[in-house]
């Protein structure tokens, strides 16, 4: 087959580059693009291990300490673990904010799963009157930016006296439409035969969902939860709108202010904030790919 295609390509109008050259070119471009992704990350990692005086020498201006030329480096000149020690042992504020982030994100994810998975199952496997308009409503809710429902949410939370508590961030996140969409698409890929076998064995709808649907739709669930974690871990507009006290602020709001207070730990705090999503992503990478693939397949 290879010889045949080479012969045919010679008789074609333009002779393509030989296979080896093409492969090398592809490798070079891939490497260049990956470098574009890795360089900022390495910059951050290096800065996280710099002591305070080196940080101020190199990055005074981005940290807001006056105008001075930026002398970036991919490796610290005087590597030191001091920023992390300072952050983890001498910044109680950081722990409060980190814990706030955890309190606001993890219950939201649990709620998204408990509330969204059955709804996604209903959309994916059942047919009932009003299914299409209802699913359209969910897609519309997914597309609309936060600001459209900001006023409505604020009024409801005010009425329920949840403003200025953690619940103000957890409750609206639990009923987000995006996880339902992703999980629906994933549940749609489960072959009907699997469920028919379950029904034949005497399973009711609930049992079919719990014992067949959830294990089979695991990639979609992982995808929805991972994307939900990333979205809520980075949440910015919701805490600004619904939280007044600074002691309830999550890490995503605290980090920009940390640079003013303690320049030394700014980058270290960034790295620590980066760890949970990155570790979760590396663990759930294959499920994420499957779940995203399922959401991209059109019926």
């Amino acid at each position: 087959m290879r010889d045949l295609s080479r012969k045919i390509s010679v008789t074609a109008k333009r002779k393509p580059l030989p296979r080896a050259v093409r492969a090398r070119l592809r490798l070079a471009v891939c490497a260049a693009v990956c470098l574009l992704v890795w360089l900022p990350i390495i910059l951050m990692l290096a800065a996280a291990f710099m002591p305070e005086d080196e940080l101020l020498y190199r990055y005074a201006e981005p940290l807001g300490a006056g105008r001075e030329t930026v002398r970036a480096a991919l490796l610290p000149s005087y590597p030191s673990v001091k920023p992390f020690l300072e952050l983890l042992f001498r910044s109680p504020g950081f722990y409060v904010m980190f814990w706030n982030s955890c309190i606001q994100v993890i219950p939201a994810l649990a709620g998204q799963f408990l509330v969204g998975a059955p709804a996604a199952w209903a959309f994916a496997r059942f047919s009932f009157t009003g299914k299409k308009p209802l699913f359209f409503l969910y897609v519309l809710l997914m597309v609309l930016p936060f600001q459209v429902t900001q006023v409505s949410n604020y009024l409801v939370l005010d009425r329920l006296h949840f403003l200025n508590t953690h619940l103000a961030l957890i409750l609206p996140a639990v009923w987000a439409a995006f996880p339902v969409f992703i999980m629906t698409k994933s549940f749609e890929t489960i072959p009907e035969a699997l469920l028919e076998a379950a029904y034949l064995d005497g399973a009711g709808e609930l049992r079919a969902f719990l014992h067949v649907g959830l294990p089979s739709g695991y990639p979609g669930i992982v995808t929805a939860l991972l994307l939900g974690f990333i979205d809520n871990w980075n949440a910015l507009e919701q805490p600004v709108a619904f939280l007044k006290e600074m002691s309830l602020w999550p890490l995503s709001l605290y980090l920009p202010n940390i640079a003013q207070e303690k320049a030394a730990v700014a980058f270290a705090a960034g790295i620590v904030m980066m760890m949970p999503p990155v570790l979760l992503y590396l663990n759930g990478q294959s499920e994420l790919e499957q779940g995203v693939a399922a959401s991209g397949v059109k019926e």
Binding site: P40, I41, M44, A47, P62, L63, W233, N234, L236, L251, S252, L255, P256, A259, A266, F267, G270, I271, M273, M274, P277, V278
Partner: peptide, 8 residues
């Protein structure tokens, strides 16, 4: 990667 970290 969180936005707050990348902004630096």
């Amino acid at each position: 990667i969180p936005v707050a970290a990348m902004v630096l």
